[in-house]
Design a binder for these strands. Sequence first.
DNA 1: CATTATTGTATCAATTTGCTACAATAAAAC
DNA 2: GTTTTATTGTAGCAAATTGATACAATAATG
Lengths: 238, 238
Amino acid sequence: MLPSENKYLTNVSFDTVIFGFTGEELKILILEYQNSGLFALPGGYIRRDENLLDAAKKGVMKRTGLKKIQLEQFHTFGKLNRSDPESSKTIAKGLGYEMPNDHWVLDRFVTIGYYALIDYNQVRPTPNKFSDSINWYSINNLPPLMMDHEEIVQKALEAIRNDLGTKLFGTNLLPEKFTMKELRKVYETILNKKLRRTTFQRKMLSMDILTRHEKLYTGAANKAPYLYSFNKKKANKT
Amino acid sequence: MLPSENKYLTNVSFDTVIFGFTGEELKILILEYQNSGLFALPGGYIRRDENLLDAAKKGVMKRTGLKKIQLEQFHTFGKLNRSDPESSKTIAKGLGYEMPNDHWVLDRFVTIGYYALIDYNQVRPTPNKFSDSINWYSINNLPPLMMDHEEIVQKALEAIRNDLGTKLFGTNLLPEKFTMKELRKVYETILNKKLRRTTFQRKMLSMDILTRHEKLYTGAANKAPYLYSFNKKKANKT
DNA sequence: CATTATTGTATCAATTTGCTACAATAAAAC
DNA sequence: GTTTTATTGTAGCAAATTGATACAATAATG
């Protein structure tokens, strides 16, 4: 039941930071391994017969239940001491296996980091067979993560801050149709600062990447906002 | 003389795109393997007892003769078919070795791409023991590169375009002191477009990251330009 | 000492962004 | 119904940034 060596590349793995937006804050999916108290990013190994990107995509699909996923590679982590064989042994033990000391997963690993931005409400978090839970955690309130996974999360955050605006964004964190306020909230949360309401709206509209739809009547005692969606044809011309 | 397995991580390598600026164009260093007609980026394997970044740094140091090198990781390449065992065999054959079919360097590799920006005139290009030459090639006139190395170069170019301005730049491609015109030329070459002379100068000066030094008298029949250097303290506060 | 090419800035126009104001609601309160 | 309240959408002007032009200040040259 432990992964067999000849099926996978050795010394290489991937880890994914899967972001969701609740409307108020950014959250990421964290696995908890059985009977070990160890928390980790979802990740995995690369089969010898698949592309690196496909391996990562498959991993995210399995954890989220989503089919179409936008994944972006952001950094590869290769410090000498980043791997921790004790953690792997603890995980195996928690599963009821005794891991031999020369098992390949106890070797040193270089891991490629990917981030995914997905619609929080469409996800059906699904643990893998080694873990008994997978849960959303606010990025401001993460459990202690194993190995260098906290560093990986920090790098992912930097990456989405940098990519926001260049690679078209907010899209993937929101449902198909959204209000301008929701979109602004996404930007504010990722950038971790307030944005001017009117300037943001003007900028977004002037970019000519949004399609306006019907109004959204929420029942609130005020003017109803329009719904927008990203006009993908125009948006990709950037 | 072929690299021994137990010293290195398997299935992982690094490749470096080393940029230099001649004053007119961007060039990169390309290795030519002996008696094989194969051109490649400088790269290597990661020793089990060293950090990934150190491995790449050491590689660039050996190829350039430089001690202080700024290296930036930009992308990791992991497509299923990117490795080409035939090339490796040809290289070994050119060196007078017969490579056994089960040799680990013939296996599939995931490679981590780094770029370096260095002072063209300070470099002493030094071939490795497997190659008989290492030369500067204009990025607009590269020889056909082996495997996916052309894709790696393209990604490196994208990366330096994106990083220009955010991560402080131009610095490393120019000598300690440089004129405003030289700095602008660097930007123009990387971005592949003309920049307005006066606006560029105003912008650079207003950023308060340059120190002005003495004038440079070239013998030309016109006003001599000032020399500038980057004020690293202020520059890093961005 | 006039000529020539280039550099460093000033100046003003054009564009973009910051800020404030205000009309247009959607529902609740009266 | 009418008034009240909270928000949305956008206009309008100020402030800041960028674009474009002009011009004084040189460093040789003849």
